[in-house]
Simulated scan of single mutants.
Amino acid sequence: MMRRFAILALAAAAALSGCALPADRPRMTWGVTATREEGAKLVLGVAATDEVRLMMTCQPRSGAVTVTIVGRSGDGAVAEIHSGKIWNRYTGAGHADDEFPGAMDIDFHLDAADPVLTHIADTGEIMVILTGRRLILPNAFAPAHDFLAICRR
């Protein structure tokens, strides 16, 4: 009986110590900025760091959006971007990420009126599929709505 209690106590301690680990990882959040020099940006990343998962940029009222997804070296330059049931497959151009070795930035050029972007602005739902990996991103409703309002003609 004592042996069973000791095993259960060790298992519980291991489980509880494992639960504390994810709290140390900073959370990625969406942010929108707009400056005259750089235009508008919608960024999913860790605040006050260079850690970025996805970025959209545009010049105000241009009607054009560049989507940059940070992938892995070897990812193809094709991505599916989903917002709820609306999705499309996009072809882009990949290049090595300057900040993180082994990462690849993949750029896609979209119209600001693209149905997927419009649905993201309306619902905040966004998921990206790269080389068989699904990146389910946090809801982006308010930031995406504000960003696209700046970008649209």
Rank of each mutant, 00 (worst) to 15 (best):
H82Y: 11
D24Q: 09
R89A: 00
R36L: 14
V67S: 01
G92V: 09
E37W: 00
A40C: 12
Y90G: 02
H82W: 08
G18Y: 10
V70G: 05
K85V: 04
P26K: 13
D97T: 03
A23N: 06
G71P: 03
G39C: 04
A20Q: 14
D97H: 14
V46R: 02
L21M: 13
G76I: 02
A34M: 11
A11G: 15
E51K: 11
T57V: 03
G31R: 14
R25T: 13
G84M: 02
L8M: 13
W87G: 03
G18A: 13
V46Y: 04
V65K: 08
H82N: 12
Y90C: 07
L21F: 09
E80H: 06
E80T: 07
S73L: 07
V70H: 06
R72C: 10
V43S: 12
H82P: 00
E51M: 09
G71C: 03
S83T: 03
P26G: 10
P26E: 13
V46P: 05
G84Q: 03
A13P: 02
D97G: 06
L10T: 14
A34D: 15
A40W: 06
E51C: 02
A9G: 04
A20W: 15
V43Y: 05
V32M: 10
C19T: 02
L44F: 12
A13F: 08
P60D: 03
W87E: 03
K41H: 14
H82D: 04
E38T: 04
Y90T: 00
M56W: 09
P22W: 06
M55Q: 07
R61M: 02
E51Q: 12
W30T: 08
R53D: 11
V78M: 04
A15P: 11
D97L: 06
L16V: 10
G74K: 08
R36F: 14
A11Q: 05
L8G: 13
L42G: 06
G18K: 08
L54H: 04
G39T: 00
Q59C: 00
R53C: 12
S17C: 04
A47H: 02
L21T: 01
A14T: 02
R25I: 13
Q59N: 06
R89N: 03
L16K: 04
A93H: 14
S73C: 03
A23I: 10
V52R: 14
A20E: 05
A48V: 03
T57D: 00
M55I: 01
